[in-house]
């Protein structure tokens, strides 16, 4: 751990923005193996503050596994660096403390608790133990700001379980914001959302990405075209193409993976649902 991140009171603050200093995520030669099955064979990609990096690929390409490995949920070899900190090989909660936040395919929020309680817990990893023993008296400014950003400022007292599907996804993103995550890894954030909700989410991600690195795993090609800054395409555990949306779409290998394989190998078209749209 670099000395600048050991401050017990919180990660180093960017004075101008009130945020942790922006850093890049650089993944190189990532390999994840489950028994004899290689889920990710050699994945290299990076994500920088100011861009929304999309990670796409057919089912089984290893997208979620990449995120699992970066966050410490599964063991991976190779390297994943956030700034100067190597992420691989750490327990999940220590990786999170370095500024890595993630969401899940199904929004994972504390359903029994209010929106405020959800955000307050997310803000708490750097609180001292003594502060944990006291009740919450005020709404911290950064919680208010995050609630504003995710459009839930008027619903702080609402129970998270009663939020709509889209709002839960936003709440989860809001939790990463108050967590001061420097890189956000979002696993299918717009799955199941209406068109308007997708647009709102995309705009939100672009705003968030101004000071943070954002990686989005997504199946929805339309969403990708509208909001991706750069795209990495995974296929069978390795990167087959990388670049702007236009570049990736023009890449014959990508076209083969998304269109050709279904036609030539007779694979179940349902597997590519959304991808071929």
């Amino acid at each position: 751990m670099s000395p600048q991140t050991v401050d017990v009171l919180g990660a180093p603050q960017d004075v101008a923005t009130g945020l942790a200093a922006p850093v890049s995520l650089v993944v190189s030669g990532l390999r994840v193996q489950f028994g004899g099955f290689v889920a990710v064979s050699d994945a290299s990609f990076d994500a920088h503050p100011g861009e929304v990096r999309f990670l796409i690929g057919p089912n089984g390409a290893g997208k979620t596994t990449c995120i699992d490995a970066i966050t410490g949920l599964v063991r991976g070899t190779g390297s994943a660096k956030l700034g100067d900190d190597e992420l691989l090989g750490r327990p999940v909660h220590r990786t999170a403390r370095l500024g890595v936040g993630r969401t899940f395919q199904t929004a994972s929020v504390f359903e029994e608790m209010s929106v405020l309680q959800n955000l307050d817990i997310a803000a708490g990893m750097n609180r001292r133990s003594a502060a944990l023993l006291r009740p919450r008296r005020t709404v911290e400014p950064r919680i208010e700001a995050a609630a504003e950003q995710i459009g839930l400022a008027g619903s702080l007292e609402q129970r998270a379980g009663t939020l709509s599907h889209g709002q839960k996804q936003w709440l989860e993103i809001g939790m990463l914001l108050v967590q001061d995550a420097r890189v956000l890894l979002l696993d299918e954030p717009v799955a199941g959302m209406s068109h308007d909700e997708r647009t709102a989410t995309g705009t939100l991600l672009q705003r968030i990405a101004e000071h943070r690195a954002v990686v989005v795993v997504e199946h929805d090609m339309d969403f990708m075209r509208r909001f991706a800054t750069r795209v990495t395409v995974l296929h069978q555990g390795s990167v087959i193409s990388e670049g702007s949306v236009a570049h990736v779409q023009a890449d014959p290998r990508v076209q083969e993976v998304y269109l050709g394989s279904a036609a030539t190998h007779g694979a179940d078209p349902a597997e590519h649902e959304g991808a071929t749209s």
Partner: peptide, 10 residues
């Protein structure tokens, strides 16, 4: 209620 979420919050 959501142990993994707590873990991923640090």
């Amino acid at each position: 209620d959501a142990e993994e979420r707590v873990r991923f919050l640090g």
